[in-house]
Simulated assay, not measured.
Amino acid sequence: MTRLLEVSGLHKSYGGVRAVDDVSFSVGPGEVIGLVGPNGAGKTTLVDCIFGTQQADSGTVALAGAALTGPSERRARQGLSRTFQHPQLAAELDAVDNIIPGLYGHKITSPLHSLWWAIKGPFENWDRTAQRAREIAARYSVTDVESACGDLSLGAQRLVEVARAMATEPDVLLLDEPFAGADHDGIAAISGAVRSIAAQGKGVVLVDHNVDLIAALATKIVLLNFGSVAFYGPPQECLASDAMREVYFGSEFEEGA
């Protein structure tokens, strides 16, 4: 299989703590790689190192065979996009205005940045740009495009972030805990968006604590524990593995206990 994203031997330490320890995996077209593990396993640090929000100490990240180096802005231009654990939206603006910056390929680093691009965008093409944003919103099940994003449910806010990230037309999308705080309807909508993205031939790296939910969406699972890969393979094999039992229940866990 063609590999869109190739992560090889990534390391990241803070003092004597190895947050990411020799992590390798790949993402092919249409694949959803689930990244799971307990709190402190290194999931978000790994995503940060892949996207360039943090610089890895060693190892490589490649997209379509080309090395990804430098800051996240450069990696975004090369075809990588992401969402964040805490939605980075301009709360006072509606979904359309929050999606528009993605159409210009600008990495969103703060709500203020989003607001600035919504205000300073190319006014001569504003109607056409807004219509494109509405189409992207509809594609990813963002149904309320008129309310201020700060008034939306957390699940709806996360959908707006997904739509904005996909407006950049990435090859691979990194989703950092997109289901956190979402209600049942939000989880269903976000799951549908993930499936839609994969159906387009995009690669997805999906981080979350809900292992069963990840297993229902993922092609493969990367199970992290103390920064290292404890298991890498098909979801059902991961759920049934000794590694899963040891990571979540400890080495003394016994069947039926």
Rank of each mutant, 00 (worst) to 15 (best):
P122Y: 08
A133L: 08
G59W: 08
L112W: 14
V142I: 11
A91P: 11
A91R: 01
A67M: 07
A64V: 06
A163E: 05
E161N: 13
A64E: 12
P101V: 07
S110I: 06
G155C: 05
V61L: 03
Q88D: 04
D57E: 01
E92L: 01
L173S: 15
D94Q: 08
V160T: 12
L80M: 06
N98H: 14
A90C: 15
A156F: 10
Y104R: 09
G70Q: 05
Q157D: 15
T53Y: 10
D97R: 12
Q131Y: 14
A156P: 08
T129P: 03
F84M: 07
L93T: 04
A66V: 14
A167F: 11
L89Y: 08
Q55S: 11
L152P: 03
A163F: 00
Q88N: 04
A167C: 14
D151F: 09
G150R: 10
S72W: 15
P170C: 09
H86S: 15
S153I: 01
L152G: 06
A133W: 09
E169N: 13
R132G: 00
L68T: 01
N98Q: 14
D151A: 12
F123Q: 08
Y140P: 15
A90P: 11
T168V: 02
G70L: 02
A90R: 13
F84Y: 06
V160E: 06
A76K: 11
K120T: 08
T60C: 03
L115F: 14
Q54P: 02
P71S: 11
E146F: 01
F123I: 06
L159M: 12
D127I: 10
A66L: 11
R74Q: 06
S147D: 09
H86F: 12
E73I: 01
D97F: 03
Q88V: 12
P111C: 07
Y104V: 11
L174F: 02
K107G: 00
G150W: 08
V142Q: 09
G59D: 05
V142S: 13
D127K: 15
I136W: 09
P122V: 06
L152R: 04
